[in-house]
Design a protein around this nucleic acid. Structure first.
Lengths: 336, 336
DNA sequence: TTGTACGCGTTATCAT
DNA sequence: ATGATAACGCGTACAA
């Protein structure tokens, strides 16, 4: 692919005065080549600066050993962690990841899927954008991660969003909180919708649903800040907030700060997804952590099955994460 | 690459009762095919579910239309922004980015470069790991970004690190600060070394070099926190700190917090690289912003030249960024 | 305007 | 053990 300098196996063979097959055998490390010829070939390889052409190999072998990984936004630490964990798993088995950032654009999601298919990926891990219509090539194995649609037709792995949100509500209730808000982006995202329903049913079970509410702010941190701010204009601050994801945390903190509401003295905060800066914030933020390493492990294991021709239709995994308490969650003031 | 379902152009041709060349012409959008046949071909494409095989096309055309982008750490927002900006530029011209995260490992940097070469990339954008030895394929155009080595042999684009650090010092001096520390990772990184030398010479020019010092903490935020903490054990806090990059900011804030030193009342902070959470921190952090969009534009422009066979040897671009002042930099207390 | 045949670099299957 | 040759899917030059 370098114009003049593209040395081929054929040229190596000529240089070493051997046949093409012998070069191939040496390159593949097959032990059937005589030491004499093997040395000649290796010398020729070094002399010519030959480099393996993976494209030709892929064409011939009809397998690219490449897996597409489609992520909406790599600046989201959960997605970044997931992408890293997936790459790690793939590489363990000699595969390469084709990492694509779809930037929350459904059009880009579609077009990037097409280029992945064109590059003959053997499988696709997909965290769909919010507005993805669900067009995919059924001939290629897909595993959907995190953002599952209602009645997802594809194999999927995600957090048990309802269960984890319920756990958060229960923990806050145990700390004496009764007025709890859930701040999130949009229930158009199925995982957000599940967090919402887990929140609502947990609040009902705790008998605090009258005092609790959900704020949907949209996909952007600034919008979310505005929504929270608007809510704080008309009612008293809640004693605790569950932030449904990174930008909800950012937005909530910004709004509370603008209104000079003390965290955690007035309002405790429990956030989804751990992020480096959550440790350095004053106060440090308590978080619900998603098990992305386990998601990657299970996902790759399923993908390997699919590649090997074993059906994974209907695969539906829902995992529990863990709750890490830091400074932002304190007992509610009893007098209120 | 999907085993059974791999529909080829040949099959489309048979299905449409046309020749292979006609199918190719239709696919390439060449206007020389009769409408009648064109319709037949398009129908056949739809019926068979044919999909373009980019691998075969790359092999045939001897060009992959793919560029490798090697980044040490995508969780660093500067690198992430740079990677995004590069992808955007490439795609404008119909290229695809192969995004690789090297995780600060020189070995991984080397091995991933090999896989990029094997995948026949037409060029490589590289932010090297700290310990990269500099092995690369001279037949493939490379552009080094950000982390330039001393006497970099390859074309390179980076911030004017000396100039921007000097600017920071000058601004802090204008605010009345005289005791300034530079906190950074390691002067083994050439850009860090340049920030260091820019810092030192600016301090000399301002006549404050006696009161200033540099703290090198290593590549990890926790290590940096420890180093700053250790320094604060033996001397009074500085009136201002310049944090040389994201993890230095994190480490510095953590150490100052542990020692209960007020920011910015006691110590002002000016950080390299803007990050989402810098706006939400109390106080919000003043930053030196790198012009990654411009880096990407110039880089891709140079890369296109190189791909087209026009030499870019010796290309050395150094860009100024901008200084965004927020709450973390205030005038020094005059009495001190 | 349409059809045919060759080559891209590799791997795999045959003979030898 | 080694060498010759076909095939992977596509693009294109050239012949019809």
């Amino acid at each position: 692919m370098v114009g003049s300098a593209g040395v081929t196996m054929k040229e190596v063979a000529r240089e070493a005065r051997v046949s093409l097959g012998t070069v191939s055998n040496v390159l593949a490390g097959r032990e059937i080549v005589s030491p004499k010829l093997k040395a000649r070939v290796e010398a020729a390889i070094a002399r010519t600066g030959y480099r393996h052409n993976g494209i030709a190999a892929s064409l011939r072998q009809q397998r690219s050993r490449t897996i597409g990984v489609c992520i909406p936004d790599l600046s989201n630490p959960f997605f970044h962690g997931l992408a890293q964990a997936l790459s790690w798993e793939l590489e363990e088995d000699g595969y390469d990841a084709l990492l694509i950032e779809t930037n929350e654009s459904g059009m880009r999601n579609d077009s990037k899927l097409q280029t992945l298919y064109s590059k003959q990926v053997e499988g696709v891990f997909l965290v769909p954008t919010v507005d993805w219509k669900g067009n995919y090539d059924s001939a290629v194995p897909h595993v959907i991660l995190d953002r599952i649609r209602e009645e997802e037709p594809l194999p999927s792995i995600a957090l048990d969003n309802e269960g984890m949100t319920r756990l958060g509500v229960e923990r806050l209730c145990a700390l004496g909180h009764r007025r709890i808000w859930l701040v999130m982006n949009s229930s158009r995202l199925w995982n957000s919708a599940l967090r919402r329903s887990g929140f609502s049913s947990a609040c009902r079970d705790q008998g605090i649903d009258g005092e609790c509410r959900v704020i949907e702010g949209g996909m952007d941190g600034h919008e979310i800040a505005d929504a929270v701010f608007a809510a704080l204009e008309i009612e008293a601050p809640p004693s605790a907030v569950i932030a449904g994801h990174g930008s909800a945390t950012l937005g909530t903190l910004r709004a509370l700060h603008t209104k000079s509401i003390a965290v955690p003295q007035t309002t405790s905060i429990l956030a989804f997804d751990d992020i480096a800066w959550m440790e350095v914030l004053r106060p440090s933020i308590s978080v619900i952590v998603q098990p992305f390493a386990e998601m990657a492990r299970l996902g790759w294991s399923a993908m390997k099955d699919a590649i090997a021709g074993r059906s994974i239709d209907g695969l539906t995994v829902r995992l529990m994460g863990s709750l890490v308490e830091r400074e932002s969650t304190i007992p509610a003031i009893p007098s209120r």
